[in-house]
Amino acid sequence: MAEKITTNDIVKEENLVFRKTPLFIDKPLSYCPGCGHGVAHRLVLETIEEMGIQSETIGVAPVGCSVLAYEFMDIDMQQAAHGRAPALATAIKRLHPEKFVFTYQGDGDLAAIGTAETIHACNRGENITIIFINNGIYGMTGGQMAPTTLPGMKSSTSPYGRDIKTMGNPLKITELVAQLPGTYYVTRQAVHTPGAVRKAKKAIRMAFENQKLNKGVSFVEIVSNCNSGWKMEPVQANEWMVENMFPFFPLGDIKVPAEQK
């Protein structure tokens, strides 16, 4: 039997299998412990790193928890007014068609105040990538009800649960934009388990690769947790998400281009 292998023998440069991508600016993320935003940021940055397009990418940050995305991503970024990220991304892409342009938006940004911009950018078929983080709540402002809040789900402005008689139905905007002719690739992913993270990364990679084809919007929804807004522990929030969010927002590809099936 060989000598006992210690941690120091294993922790060597040649054995490295995973490290934080250097495209992250070295500062602590401002998100709550357990928030899916961190993983989503990482997947976007890893995709950019693997494609070697750090200097050709322009991101558009939203308003919401991820308003400070430009503080963490070592790429060119712009900050859009609330909900207007697809409109700003349209302008950037039209002025710099050779650049990779993506927006990173939450559900309060994309599906509430930015519904018009989102739908029209998707309908026009702008050649951009939209990363949409859906946690069913307005996380940054204190957990208010969002258009994506589930029926019966408690939030700070629906303390007895969302009553669809008075508060209306939740909006499945991803299914909605999939109906539009301008979208090329529409998918819904999650980042709560290692398998889901790997799938989500593939989807984000495809969404960025599609910009080379100039065929329209690539739209990636990531169903995420908001443990602070949902008033749960991070692990418990992920379980709640699997039980309650996934039946309403089922994971999987919604629109896949025929040639990539």
Partner: peptide, 24 residues
């Protein structure tokens, strides 16, 4: 086993993973 599952789900990317083959 250095499967990197923990690093995959870590929201703050604080985990670095190393893996090596050992002959016994």
């Amino acid at each position: 086993t250095g499967c990197a599952n923990c690093a995959m789900v870590c929201p703050d990317a604080v985990i670095t993973v190393y893996r090596m083959k050992v002959n016994e």
